[in-house]
């Protein structure tokens, strides 16, 4: 190498030769370009408070901490949208484990459940997000490959049946096992929840879920102020931040108060049955006992709490 002799002879310090001057100039230019390149990061960081950044995991927050966090979020929503929302921490009820069943003979594929979910859970409006996907299936087959989602003819079509799919609230949820930071977990009433303020957005859970039940906030969800549902649960339908996962929670802000989920209320045909699996008198238990039910993809071993059945 040509510069070898130069290197060995170069002074260890001091003596600003031409090469050193050029290096300093280069470093200065590089630093300037660097600060320009990361400029969007500073814009982004302006919208985040230190409290928010340092917030602990949901399960490590004391009741007082959590109350403060929720108050901060309510205030933030008020500032950003002008809407007074009420965020509450709904806890699982003792002696309750939720189950859901769907009658495929009765479902007509009107997609009102998907729409109700969209409205109830403050979903991003531009993308039309919903936790429910309704598949139009070929009669004579349960092969998902024969299903399609964007049908637009009058329903029910005589040659088809309809299968809405949402989170199956598995008893062995692969999405929970794969999460590197325990940002998602299964609660005692069977609902798999996400701490939106702890999720790092790696989307490993989305890859692991066999039911396409998880959704990612590719951008900050946009909901017009007039359409925001103000009754919000901390672990469910509060306005989500950008870059985190979300999923169906069986509307825990409703169901943990004893109410039916929004998708069930929207169902005009009564294809949906919801209730407490631990109550032998419940309607869901009646279905499990008296109908021939099946679960989706039983072979993957996820043990869903969501069941499908037929009348005929």
């Amino acid at each position: 190498m040509i510069e070898t002799s130069e290197q060995t002879n170069a002074p260890e310090a001091g003596g600003m030769d031409r090469r050193t001057a050029l290096k300093v100039l280069g470093a200065t230019l590089g630093a300037a370009a660097f600060s320009q390149a990361i400029a969007p990061l500073t814009e982004w960081a302006e919208n985040m408070s230190l409290d928010e950044y340092l917030q602990k995991h949901y399960r490590e927050l004391s009741p007082v901490d959590l109350a403060m966090v929720m108050a901060r979020m309510e205030k933030q929503t008020k500032e950003q949208t002008g809407v007074d929302v009420h965020i509450q921490d709904y806890r699982p009820q003792p002696g309750v484990k939720f189950g859901y069943a769907l009658n495929l003979s009765v479902c007509v594929g009107c997609r009102r459940c998907a729409k109700a979910c969209h409205i109830e859970n403050n979903h991003d409006r531009p993308s039309g997000n919903s936790y429910i996907r309704v598949l139009e299936m070929e009669k004579g087959s349960l092969d998902l490959a024969k299903g399609r989602v964007n049908y637009d003819h009058p329903v029910p079509h005589p040659d088809k049946f309809y299968m809405p799919v949402q989170c199956q609230q598995c008893d062995k949820p692969p999405c929970v096992s794969v999460c590197p930071v325990e940002a998602t977990w299964k609660e005692s009433d069977g609902i798999v929840v996400v701490d939106y303020n702890w999720c790092i957005g790696c989307r490993y859970c989305e890859a692991a879920c066999p039911y396409h039940a998880r959704r990612f906030n590719w951008t900050k969800p946009q909901v017009p102020a007039a359409e925001i549902n103000p009754d919000q649960g901390y672990l469910s339908n509060r306005l989500r931040p950008q870059g985190v996962m979300e999923k169906c929670t069986f509307c825990l802000h409703r169901s943990r108060q004893g109410k039916l989920p929004a998708c069930l209320e929207a169902c005009p045909t009564g294809a949906r049955v919801f209730g407490n699996l631990l109550d032998p008198e419940s309607e869901i238990r009646w279905v499990l006992k008296n109908k021939r039910v099946f679960v989706l993809k039983e072979d993957v071993g996820t043990q869903p709490s969501f069941f499908y059945f037929f009348d005929e």
Binding site: Q36, A37, I38, A39, P40, W218, T219, G243
Partner: peptide, 14 residues
């Protein structure tokens, strides 16, 4: 690349 990443962090993975 760094600039593109900074934009991605600001605007989301959209």
């Amino acid at each position: 690349g760094l600039h593109a990443w900074a934009v991605q962090v600001r605007d989301g993975l959209a």
